[in-house]
Design a protein around this nucleic acid. Structure first.
Lengths: 253, 253
DNA sequence: TCTTGTGAACTTGTTCACAGCT
DNA sequence: AGCTGTGAACAAGTTCACAAGA
């Protein structure tokens, strides 16, 4: 996958692999949970298991950040939380706008995990005049006519698009023109953006189609494979699941 | 990520790379749009551009499916739509259950893209008794007590979890025990599943954190890099964006 | 003795560039 | 002449396995 990092291609001394960046939030979540339970220290094995990856990968990932562990002991939880937060840029506050306040937009606005990690919903924007002024998650919806002003006065650099597919490119263009340089796109559309703008795409129907592919293959395997080991699940060991792993996800601008 | 495909590791003759599988839905969407405009044939260059990937990758991807193009001409749109649909298992109907009918669950239930491509919402399930019987997207919500019966009578093999994080593992265990073998998890939790069960995770807060990382780096680059090329976007060419490529995505309830 | 940190091997994915077919 | 299909080069990511250090 190629997460688009097209700007300034050279001069990157301490480049952290994209796959690693994609896992840092996962580690951070696991570490935060440990921190809340006042666990002082954790081994790569334990943390890896909590994050659903294997320990060699985790150690390699951390090695790109520096040497924050202690041999024979493990990692200091609080210290690691801080280092990863800093690396991800979560020690600062990121104002975010959500454009398109339908079912999904409202769901995201109500999502608590937002505020918890450096993100703040600065504004909700919708094109429907009848939505203007309505309170969603305690925030008044504003009309899309004011998009540029909202972006500007709030210093927003991250936008979330939850409009229907047909409106997404247009909204995207306006966001970018107004100064937004990172976009999380929930609309089922491929967005065109200028160089230097990052787009990440979240697409439910694509996820389901990928599951269907594997599901179909399991069914085929069950038919062809002679002696089926058991009903559905042989109850083997627990598998790993990655945020990325497979599908990559982002994209370059 | 590693989409857990732990079952039957060997004996896979016609293995399609995971990265390719992740892009097939993207091609399918672009092809469907062409089909609706009655475009009979398309070149790898055109289709790649519509899907937001480069043409060499697209041709390589299609080569894993077989030789469905015509040299000097391109690909027959209708034929390709059929072949990809078949490969993804979308020529059959997949009943899906959504567990956890909060904001997000309701948003997904209302999502039109579901039915359009082989997926059918067979049931909505929630643990809150006051939700039972309520209509969401034209479907009556059922109580989680009946989960096993619902899975069984509808022959469901794909489940979507949109519960709060705390309930996700428990719901997952019951889904798996009832026979579900593919799970799309929106809860901010790493799910443990037996071998043979696929889990895909969509996590909004992770997506935002990845964007924040890149955003932070752009800011750092702008400071260090002497002459800034322009305001925000140099208005370069249009980049590619992958579904997978990197991380997938949605989120927690 | 225990666990990190990492070179090296390996696997997966991407891009190139061109032969081969229409 | 044009575009697909693909071997081969390349790049990214993962896993192994063990030396180094606490």
């Amino acid at each position: 996958m190629a997460t688009g990092r097209n700007h300034r291609p050279a001069t990157r001394s301490r480049g952290i692999p994209e796959a690693t960046v994609a896992r840092l939030p996962l580690y951070l979540r696991a570490l935060t949970a440990l921190s809340e339970r006042s666990v002082p220290t954790v081994s790569s094995e334990e943390l890896a298991s909590a994050a659903g990856v294997n320990s060699a990968k985790l150690r390699k990932d951390f090695s790109y950040l520096g040497s924050y562990g202690t041999r024979g002991v493990g990692y200091d939880v609080e210290y690691l939380v801080y280092q990863i937060s800093r690396e991800l840029g979560l020690t600062q506050d990121w104002p975010v706008v959500i454009v398109g306040i339908g079912n999904l937009g409202a769901a995201l606005a109500n999502y608590g995990g937002f505020a918890s990690r450096g993100f703040r919903v600065a504004a909700l924007i919708d094109a429907d005049p009848s939505m203007t002024g309505k309170q969603v998650a305690g925030i008044a919806v504003q009309h899309v006519d004011d998009l540029e002003t909202i972006i500007d006065t709030n210093g927003v650099s991250i936008g979330v698009i939850t409009t229907p597919g047909g409106a997404a490119q247009q909204v995207c263009d306006r966001l970018v023109a107004a100064g937004v340089t990172s976009i999380l796109n929930f609309a089922p559309t491929v967005l065109s953006v200028p160089d230097g703008v990052d787009v990440r795409k979240v697409d439910l129907s694509i996820e389901l189609q990928i599951l269907a592919f594997h599901e179909q293959r399991k069914a085929a395997d069950a038919l062809s494979g002679a002696a089926a080991p058991g009903p559905a699940a042989p109850a083997g060991d627990r598998g790993e699941q990655g945020p990325d792993g497979d599908i990559p996800a982002v994209m370059p601008a």
